[in-house]
Amino acid sequence: MTDGNSQRLTDLMRSSQDGDGKAYLELLRAITPMLRATARRQLPVYNRQDMEDVVQDILMSLHAARATYDPERPFIPWLMGIARNRIADAVRRYARQAAHEQVVEIVPETFFDPGANMSAEVYRDPEALRRAIDGLPHQQRRAMELLKLREMSLKEAAAVSGTSVGALKIAVHRAVGTLREVLSKGT
C-alpha cells in the first residue's frame, strides 16, 4: 500500500464520517479486495464462500464501528485492527464447529423403536430440508439463510437484506412454521 493510496483512503474515511455517501461507497469498494487478500492469507483452508462471509463480517463491523475512527490517525491500522479481530473470531468459530462435528459413515440409531426415529430422520435429511427451504417465499428463505444458515445477528441480517429487524423476526417465525408443516407432511 503506497503512502498516496493510504492518504486517499484516510481522506475518503474522513469524508464518509461527515456523511458523504459517495466517498463511503468508494472507500468500501477500494478496501474490499484488500480485505479479501488479508482473509485469504490468514484463512488458507477456507473455501471461497466462507472467505466472502468473513469479508462481509469485516465490512459490517467497520460500518458499526465507524464512529471510533479518529481522522488524526492513519486509516489502514484502524481497518486492519477490525479485520484481524473478525478473522480471529472466524477462526475460533471454525475451530468450535470442527470440535463439535464428527464425521461418521453411518448415522447411529437414536431409539430402539424405529417409529420413534421417524421425525428425527426426516429432519436430518438435508436434501428434504433443502427442498423445503427452496420452496419458501423469497423473504422467508432469505431470512432463514441469513439468520439460521449464516448465523448473522438480526442487525447484520437487516443491513444485508434491507428489511427491518421486526420484519426479519416475523419472516423467520413464519418460515420455521412452514418448514415444520412441510417436513411433517412428508413423513
Binding site: 464520517q17 463511503y24 468500501l28 462481509q56 459490517m60 465507524r66 443491513a159
Partner: peptide, 17 residues
C-alpha cells in the same frame, strides 16, 4: 458483497465521532 456495500453506503448517515 457488492450488494452489501451498496446497502451500507445507501444507509450511511453523518456520524458523531
Amino acid at each position: 458483497t457488492d450488494d452489501l456495500i451498496e446497502r451500507l453506503a445507501t444507509r450511511h448517515k453523518p456520524i458523531r465521532r
